[in-house]
């Protein structure tokens, strides 16, 4: 599973190609906006894919970190007069710090207990955002100021398409390098057998914690980008359903696959937009698609297709 340099180039090349092709094929502002949303969600899904695929840990509250990133970006300028970009940086730090603090006790838990603990964490973040009405605007959400760099207003779907797309490319590059690093190898060992890994001298707890913090940072980055791009956030960004959506992205795309996270994010972002045409049938079709994907492409879209392509020569 370790990506060699060739695979790394292949993945990044494929991503870059898609990034270049989308604006040529779908030039309308609306399509670019949806694409930008895909890239943003993909960044969050990437972090979670590392956690789930590499460290074998599930998080049902990952949107909580997205919420921290998004709300920091919104609240910094409003209450502290900070620059939005600086606030976003603070939000990312905050999310990382929180993950570091709660990571140890939470990651000690196994299987479903880990699931419910992360779930609780996400719900607590969501609840704070909903309840602290004077600060956060409560359930109705809050406006985010426009981002200005050197006096230039960063607006328009086209510009944001590139900002988010390039961020995703960088995030993917970092993730690939992490997989290939010694920490990555230690984590893969841990995924296979925690006991064996600790026997050969891997600091299991530390390795898990590192990936948990990285995943939180990715989610907060995605949250911040979303806030700046959408210029409006509601507590739903940190909600339980968002967390589930993120996990579903990773699993549908293919756990442990970088490209898979992107494909999963694309599917789950575009599908609801496309399904609005079905009006009343929207939810039924979404639910059915999820079941069908999971039943028929159990290992996920990307690994599933890759297996079909490379069936002749075993990888």
């Amino acid at each position: 599973m370790a990506p060699g340099t060739r695979t790394k180039l292949l993945v990044l090349g494929a991503l870059g190609l898609v990034l270049l092709l989308v604006p040529l094929l779908l030039p309308s502002a609306f399509h670019l906006r949806v694409a930008a949303l895909v890239w943003i969600n993909a960044v969050a899904a990437l972090g979670l894919a590392l956690l789930m695929g590499l460290a074998g840990q599930v998080s049902l509250g990952h949107a909580g970190f997205m919420g921290i990133g998004a709300y920091a970006t919104a609240l910094g300028p409003k209450h502290l007069g900070l620059d939005p970009l600086l606030s976003m940086g603070a939000g990312i730090l905050l999310a990382g710090a929180l993950a570091f603090l709660v990571g140890r006790p939470i990651l000690r838990l196994k299987g479903h207990y880990l699931a419910v603990a992360t779930l609780g964490l996400g719900i607590l973040v969501h609840l704070v955002l909903v309840s602290e009405v004077p600060t956060t605007g409560g359930p109705d959400g809050i406006q985010v100021p426009r981002l200005e760099l050197f006096g230039i207003r960063l607006v328009g779907p086209e510009l944001w398409y590139w900002i988010t797309g390039i961020t995703l490319l960088l995030a993917a590059w970092l993730a690939l390098n992490l997989e290939d690093s010694s920490t990555g190898r230690a984590l893969r060992a841990l995924h296979d057998s925690e006991i064996a890994a600790s026997v050969v001298g891997v600091d299991v707890a530390r390795a898990k914690l590192v990936v948990f913090v990285i995943a939180a940072v990715y989610a907060a980055l995605a949250g911040g980008l979303f806030a700046l791009f959408n210029r409006f956030v509601t507590p739903d960004v940190a909600g339980f359903l968002r967390s589930i959506e993120l996990v579903t992205m990773v699993v549908i795309g293919g756990m442990g696959s970088i490209l898979g996270a992107v494909v999963g994010a694309a599917l789950l972002t575009v599908l609801p937009q496309a399904l609005t045409l079905f009006h009343d049938y929207e939810h039924a079709v979404l639910g059915l698609s999820i079941i069908l994907f999971m039943v028929f492409l159990r290992q996920g879209i990307v690994p599933g297709l890759a297996a079909l392509v490379t069936r002749r020569r075993p990888a």
Binding site: A29, D140, G141, N230, F232, T234, T276, H279
Partner: peptide
Amino acid sequence: IYDDGGDANNARTFATRLVES
């Protein structure tokens, strides 16, 4: 007509869609 499900964020997205698309 779009259904925002009572969610402010969806409403924002659909308003954008009404304008741009």
